[in-house]
């Protein structure tokens, strides 16, 4: 029985700085970026003041939904964050769903999520600085009592780490479990039909009947449900951390 659970394949290596490997992850990331850009260009071509085409209605719905999501979770003052949040959720959702097309999902590699999480961490730190100044930022670590300083530092660092690991773990576990179920179904298939005598047993045993259908249910759960849910959760956590880092909204 062969179970193959591998990371991203390396296509080739650019021989500068000691070799930069070009992996499946990078290539698929660029493919998804191109897909999103193409979709946006296609959706926003020849817009009218009053929507007449279905295309424009869909585009307006998406933009309104993105603005509604950001304003509902971060407040009106973070309206300018909408392009970032919409990019984040569309990229994560599309890359999770891309595994349905047989591509290697870029989010199945930790580096992708870690990059996003570090970006979010920088934003959180920036807004904490902006809200309280450098002194307030340092003071935030000494609350409620100074003895808790190490724990506060750990919790600060664990925010991006746990965000990255959560998304990576969900997507990677889907891949691992799907691979294991495929292998188990192949073995069960061989056991069910392999005992038939002679040529018939060999023929039926070598055709993986059981691999049709059952993995599709897993794919719907891990790719569609879990993929969209994790993209949504990563984005929601991003919004909540940034909004709470910036402090309470001033009464306007």
């Amino acid at each position: 029985m062969d179970i193959s659970i591998t990371g991203a394949k390396i296509f080739f290596t650019i021989p500068i700085f000691g070799g930069i490997p070009i992996t499946e992850t990078l290539v698929n990331t660029w493919l998804i970026m191109a897909a999103i850009t193409g979709l946006c260009i296609w959706l926003t071509r020849d817009l009218k003041v009053h929507a007449t085409s279905k295309k424009q209605i869909v585009a307006e719905f998406l933009v309104k939904a993105a603005y509604g999501l950001v304003e509902g979770n971060m407040g009106k003052r973070f309206r300018h964050f909408t392009p970032f949040i919409a990019t984040l959720i569309s990229f994560l959702a599309l890359s999770n769903l891309s595994s349905m097309l047989g591509l290697y999902a870029p989010t199945a590699e930790l580096s992708t999520e870690l990059a996003f999480a570090i970006l979010v961490f920088i934003l959180i730190t920036y807004y904490k600085f902006k809200a309280g100044g450098p002194l307030g930022y340092v003071k935030g670590f000494l609350e409620p009592i100074p003895i808790l300083l190490p724990f506060n530092i750990i919790s600060e660092i664990s925010t991006p780490v746990s965000m990255a690991f959560r998304h990576f773990g969900n997507i990677a576990s889907g891949g691992v479990i799907t691979a294991l179920v495929y292998a188990a179904l192949a073995a069960a298939n061989r056991m069910l039909f392999g005992w038939l005598p002679g040529f018939l047993g060999q023929l039926l045993g070598s055709i993986p009947f059981l691999q049709v259908g059952i993995p599709a249910v897993l794919s719907i759960y891990f790719d569609v449900f879990s993929g969209c849910l994790q993209a949504y959760i990563f984005t929601m956590l991003t919004m909540m951390y940034i909004a709470s880092a910036a402090g309470e909204e001033e009464a306007a």
Binding site: F165, R166, G169
Partner: peptide, 9 residues
Amino acid sequence: AVAETTGIY
């Protein structure tokens, strides 16, 4: 999702 973190670790 937040409760899941320890399992993911």
